[in-house]
Design a protein around this nucleic acid. Structure first.
Lengths: 190, 190
DNA sequence: CCGTACTGAGACACTAGTGTCTCGTAAGAG
DNA sequence: CTCTTACGAGACACTAGTGTCTCAGTACGG
């Protein structure tokens, strides 16, 4: 029987465990992590890992697709268009940081399988860009820094925040609040 | 004659070229870049590369040491202690971003040769931390976010700025000004 | 309680990168 | 101009990771 088309609960569970472990290991050890490392972390044999993902590349692809889908879903649920820009930005931070490890791997220099780039742009880039563009248009965000540059700086803040949360040096809520505040108000006192 | 102890001008030039090329390649391709890639980028043969650096590890070590030394020297020359915190932060940004590629590699997950960590802390961590601590003490920087967290967020901004400058999407001066401004004042308009 | 299907362990071939060595050649110093 | 020195190219052994395969053991559904 072709089990690759049938999603038994057991198979789904193992798949999820592998993806979780892979995200964790790759976020920690970087691209240096091997398939054996991932298998160990997931508590399965190396052969089983290959039964779930034909190649290392397809594992990374699935990981990226998973991360993009989850982050995208959170953003879509966030109702960004209906709220003030400040609140929208806070929700974006919360959504991305919540995905954490998974997202960090995507950023760590495009492991993205080429066409997956479109998905990133469609599900993540566009909604975020829209909020920022609205911010500039409604004079909530400063107009003297290019939108592109502002987004890149925002991304840098998010990456370091994910790192902090991943190392448990700060909680998710505190982190989201802090980074939103710093990004909007800056680090200057009062 | 033991040429490893004699620093002929030619050897120094080649060493510098290799380190430059290595920094560039590693910053672009990440840790995936091979010794052959570095040799190609430097315009030397692979054998020659090994004549200058016994192992891949020693190349990375030299690269990190070089980056830390240069960034450290720039910070030391910046006279951080004598100027207001805002100006000191701007000078830190300028110093780190100027080192660029080299610095980015250090950050990309400690390739640091263990004891080199001390040097990073002594030459980079301490002076920067001192400025931030002074900022909090003199009520220039917000006290409601941990110094550690603030430093990490600052580092995230620096990393994305280096990326922007490396891709020529913004000039060094504009970048330094923008990131300083955003970090201190935030992204909110006026 | 039985049988099917999945599993972990390990052997295996293959690939890519590392580090070593040699040799003919080119370049720079005196 | 000559002689030394470093160079590039390539062969080489070695290592580590990838992906395939087999096989005995085990969990789980019927």
């Amino acid at each position: 029987m072709n089990s690759s088309l049938i999603h038994s609960p057991r198979r789904d569970r193992t798949t999820a465990a592998i993806l979780d472990a892979a995200a964790h290991v790759l976020a920690a050890d970087g691209a240096a992590a091997s398939m054996a490392d991932v298998a160990n972390a997931a508590g399965v044999g190396r052969a089983t890992l290959y039964r779930y993902f034909e190649t290392r590349e397809s594992l990374l692809e699935a990981l990226a697709a998973d991360a993009v889908a989850e982050a995208g879903a959170r953003l879509a649920d966030a109702g960004l268009d209906g709220v003030p820009v400040e609140l929208a930005i806070e929700r974006i931070v919360r959504a991305i940081v919540a995905v954490g490890d998974r997202y960090a791997i995507i950023v760590r220099e495009g492991i993205l399988p080429d066409r997956e780039d479109e998905e990133v742009e469609r599900l993540l880039g566009m909604p975020i860009r829209a909020v920022f563009a609205r911010g500039v248009r409604t004079e909530v965000l400063r107009p003297d820094v290019t939108l592109d540059v502002l987004l890149e700086l925002f991304g840098g803040l998010l990456t370091s925040t994910i790192k902090l949360v991943g190392q448990r040096r700060i909680g998710l809520e505190d982190a989201a609040a802090a980074v939103t505040d710093v990004f909007l108000q800056g680090s200057r006192a009062q």
